[in-house]
Design a protein around this nucleic acid. Structure first.
Lengths: 218, 218
DNA sequence: ATTTTTTTTTAGATTTGTCTAAATTTAAAT
DNA sequence: ATTTAAATTTAGACAAATCTAAAAAAAAAT
C-alpha cells in the first residue's frame, strides 16, 4: 500500500469511471472530465505508467492495471462514505455532498475510513444510490431498477430515491418506505399505472406511478 | 474571505501558537515546528507579508496581523472540531486524533464546519481540553485548573480529563462525572488529600486526590 | 491515395513549495 | 571594540503539476 497525491488519485478515479467494458480511455476524455489540458493528461499517464497503475502505449489510450483499480476503488470508497456522512449526519442536501466529498476523499488514513464506515453503520449505498466498496475493494454490483419496472412478486430492497424534494421525503416517511426496506409488487393497475406494494409486517397498499418511478430497488 | 493553501495555513497556525504576549516569532522556531529549513520559512514569510497576514521586517521576526489571527483561529476551529468528532464519534484515542485532524483541518468549507459544529452539539473544548473557537473566531479563554486546586464551594464545569486510560474512564463513568458537568468541592480531607464533591441532583461523595488531579475544570 | 482534420505527444515555460550553500546581519563573548 | 558564533536571508536549483505552442501520429474525408 503506497500513498498517492491528490492529483494522482483524481486521475485514477476519473479513468476508473470512464473505462467501461473493453474500451480504452482517451486523453481528451480525461482532460475534459478533470478540466485540464490533454498535455497535462499525457504527463500524468507517463507517471502512472511508471508506477504500474495503468497500461499505456503512446496514442493507444489507457486502462487501469489491477493495482490501479484497487486504488480507484479505495478513493471511491472514501468519497462515498464521506457523502453518506455529509447527507445522513450533517444533513446536507444530496446535490451538495459531492463537491465536499471531493476534498475529504483525499484524507486517506485507512483506520479513519474503516472507523467512519462502522460509525455510519456500514452503509452499502451512498446518497446517490451508488454502491460503496468495502474495505477490501469489493463492490455490490447488483443492478438497480425503478420500482415501477420491478416484476410482480419479486422481493427487492429499496436502494435510493431520485427526487430529493421535501414533499417526496414526507410522503415516503408517511408510507414508511425507507432505504433498505424489503418491498414487493403485488399488483399493477393499468388504468393509471398505480401499483400495489407490500412491505414486511404491513398490509399491502398502493402508490402512484409517479412515486414508483422515483424509487429505485435491487 | 480568501482561501489559503495547506502550506500557508500550517505556517499561520504555527505562528499563532508560538506568538504569546509581546514576543516576536523567530524563523528558527517556525522551521523547527514545521520540520522545514529556515530558508523555507523566510520564503513563506515574504509571501504572507505580501498577503498582509503578518507584520515582518527582515531579521526582526514576525507577528500575525489581525487578519492573520482570524485565519489562524479558523484553522484551529476546524482542527479542534475534527478532533472532537474523531474522539467522540469515531472513538479514536485522544493521542490519535491530532495527526488525523492535521489533514482534515484543511478542508475549509465554512458551511461544512458550521454543520459539523452543530452536529457535534457545539462543543466548547476539544478532547485535549483546548477551547474551540466559534464561527466568528471567538475563543473561550477561561483558565483551566485541576479539580484538586478548585476552592471549596465554587461551582465549576468539567472540561477535560488528562489521563486517557480505560481504567480512569471506567471510574468516571461509574461516578457519573462527565465533560460539561457542574461540580463543586464541599470538603477537603487533609489526611489523604481526598475531597468530597457534589454534582447536581446527587448526594455528595468523595474521590481520591489522584482522581481529582486528573480532572480539569474552569 | 492523398489531403485534411483531429487527437495526442513533445518541448519548453510557469507556479508553488521546498532545498543547499553562500552571504549577510544580529547577538554574544572575549 | 573586535572577534566569534548564531540566526537569518539571498541566490540558485529542483520536483510536482500545470500550461501553451509546435510537432507527430492516427483517423476521417475527399
Amino acid at each position: 500500500m503506497f500513498n498517492f497525491s491528490t492529483s494522482e488519485e483524481n486521475y485514477i478515479k476519473t479513468i476508473y469511471h470512464l473505462q467501461t467494458g473493453q474500451h480504452t480511455v482517451t486523453t481528451n476524455a480525461v482532460a475534459e472530465k478533470l478540466n485540464t489540458r490533454p498535455a497535462s493528461v499525457t504527463d500524468m499517464m507517463k507517471k502512472l505508467k511508471a508506477k504500474k497503475l495503468l497500461h499505456y502505449q503512446p496514442y493507444q489510450g489507457f486502462r487501469l492495471s489491477h493495482e490501479g483499480k484497487r486504488v480507484a476503488l479505495d478513493v471511491i470508497r472514501r468519497h462515498r462514505l464521506w457523502e453518506f456522512f455529509l447527507a445522513e449526519k450533517l444533513k446536507f442536501k444530496w446535490d451538495e455532498v459531492h463537491a465536499l466529498a471531493e476534498d475529504l476523499e483525499h484524507v486517506s488514513s485507512k483506520k479513519l475510513i474503516d472507523k467512519l464506515d462502522d460509525f455510519l453503520g456500514n452503509p452499502k449505498f451512498d446518497p446517490h444510490g451508488d454502491p460503496i466498496p468495502n474495505s477490501l475493494g469489493k463492490i455490490d454490483d447488483s443492478e438497480q431498477i425503478s420500482l415501477a419496472d420491478l416484476p410482480m412478486n419479486k422481493i427487492a430492497e429499496v436502494r435510493r430515491v431520485i427526487n430529493q424534494s421535501g414533499e417526496l421525503l414526507e410522503l415516503l416517511q408517511h408510507k414508511k418506505i425507507t432505504i433498505g426496506a424489503r418491498i414487493e409488487v403485488k399488483r399493477k393497475f393499468h388504468f393509471d399505472h398505480s401499483i400495489e406494494i407490500k412491505l414486511r409486517q404491513q398490509p399491502p397498499f398502493s402508490i402512484s406511478q409517479q412515486l414508483a418511478k422515483n424509487i429505485y430497488v435491487s
